[in-house]
Design a protein around this nucleic acid. Sequence first.
DNA 1: ATGAAAGCGCTAACAT
DNA 2: ATGTTAGCGCTTTCAT
Lengths: 359, 359
Amino acid sequence: MENPQSDIFLIAPGVRRSHGKSTLADVAAQAGVTTMTVSRLLREPNSVKPETAERIRQALTATGYTPNKQAGSLASGRSALVAVLIPSVANSIFAETIQGLAETLQPAGLELMLAPSGYSHEREENQLRAMLGWAPAAVVVTGRQHSAGSLQLLRSAREAGTPVIEMWDNEPQTAEFTQIGFNHHQAGQAMARHLLHCGYTDLMFLDSSVVQDYRAHERGLGFVQAAEQAGVEVRIQTAQLGEPMAAGRAMLQGLLQPSRPLAIGFANDHLAVGALLQACDFGLAVPQQLALLGFGDFPIAGQLMGGLSTLAAPRHLIGLECGRSILNSLNIKIRSSETSLEPVCLEPKLMIRHTTKLF
Amino acid sequence: MENPQSDIFLIAPGVRRSHGKSTLADVAAQAGVTTMTVSRLLREPNSVKPETAERIRQALTATGYTPNKQAGSLASGRSALVAVLIPSVANSIFAETIQGLAETLQPAGLELMLAPSGYSHEREENQLRAMLGWAPAAVVVTGRQHSAGSLQLLRSAREAGTPVIEMWDNEPQTAEFTQIGFNHHQAGQAMARHLLHCGYTDLMFLDSSVVQDYRAHERGLGFVQAAEQAGVEVRIQTAQLGEPMAAGRAMLQGLLQPSRPLAIGFANDHLAVGALLQACDFGLAVPQQLALLGFGDFPIAGQLMGGLSTLAAPRHLIGLECGRSILNSLNIKIRSSETSLEPVCLEPKLMIRHTTKLF
DNA sequence: ATGAAAGCGCTAACAT
DNA sequence: ATGTTAGCGCTTTCAT
């Protein structure tokens, strides 16, 4: 594109090699102004005289200038990065949340820095530490359970004025940060209550095999609690490791033929789909003999043989809300120095389809 | 949250507010060394005397030091960021690729910067421009079709020594950058050939509704071409907008009852699953009357009523390979036992299950 | 094995 | 509306 310059006398001791990219100084020189004027044009276009602006714009395109964000952030102490920590990208639940986040943040010029923690607290802490080194404009973590170290990092980030959001969970009593999500214990209760309301008297919950997925476990506990309170027989079982649909199938294969109608709640729709498919293969009467209630409302749930009943989690909405909350916090900080810590609660919705029915 | 500072005598002309975080200088002062020694310890621990190292380590934890990466990158001209551009995070295809990338890059200390382009060339260019401002250590884009501006950005990045990878595609003849993927035209051909080999003489391809998903379209073209070469009747149809499974169902609903067996290839497994479910509802004989061949090998494919035949795309492997290629370019050694740089086969594999059969 | 000096590219604060 | 100056926190280069 452009050769920097070759004036020998410019090379002095202590000089560093530049990577050949054009800088603000290059643009300024070419436009006959100082770097400050160019910098201003880039950030507050109205504060520059139209004629000067025009000259600078030409120089900008002529040099093919790309702002160096490291330098900008270092100087301003701000960055347009949002750090997002999720257990797994490959999980459809979180994928849509990220999509929602991206949709909200990108138009505002904020960039996404993503780190999967693999459901491990230790990795979360490491990732968090690394990301905080970039002085992000905001931090989003998944869930409310963190290692002591992570907690400390999050606290000091918040104290430094960085919005911190815990998403996919909600427990207002102990909330230390903004929470955008819902209560999983209550979600589990709601699942059990629906099955009870349908009239089933033998309940079961198939929990996720991911040991660290405490949100799934909490749903299971809520499920069991609600069933016990109703005086109904209930048990909980953990899915086998591996692909969830296969695990759902396997669970049903291992089940004894029940003498009376059985209703199963699942940690997620994939497990439920597996079980449903196996039930069909077995020729079990769904929902008369066997009721199935998933969690998540993945696309497949609405399509499968009459529809899988499920508790719909607002996976996309959570992302959107996180984004909105971040934009809000950042704006508020600029205008009034007031920070809102209002917890947002996004309740899951029961989708009653074919696999659970009043009868 | 926190009042900047109030020590009057610390305020000197030209002074900037520091965000209260401890810096290298703080650590150095506390350990009684200069910043350089601390900096060295952090990067090449062996070049520091053990006793000094110990003192510094204590100061490090005492101050709760977190390196400022902006400053580090600015000074060194390097960064540990990998910029990744994908059409959509919510698409299961790319989600697993990202997961693979993360798995490979994280242990090497590289961080992921993610931007969804929404299948738009314009957004891709904007995102690319923004990300390049962070001087990433490597750039990964999806596919080989880019706007002229993007192409220019990618070229200059590569010229500046930044590895550039195009993933999910492969066309060696015109390849300008490292490509990690497979040829979609050939994939489409392979799909048609399998159906022809099974004996079907009436073929159809259901293309993706996403206009900019040229990879899907290329598979469609390959499919049609292979069928025509075999002198077999073939047509191509575009799925309706919206949820893919619903679109797959809708397609089948709109189809006239065929007089002879029909074989359909799909742009992806979700479309195929929708069609398969609808076929069951219609009571069509699968695969005798209707053959279905998906693309992707999503988890559901293996579970659904005897299994959906599909062309398995190495979605996770592509991510892993991209990561490996980046580490390799950057001369980062992996501690993994296999040091083999042998070429890995990224060709999609035919999974013959129930929905296509020799008969 | 450690230090001193310079500067990466940009912006805040203070001129004018 | 534009310029001047200093400095963000770190690493390079060269010196000891």
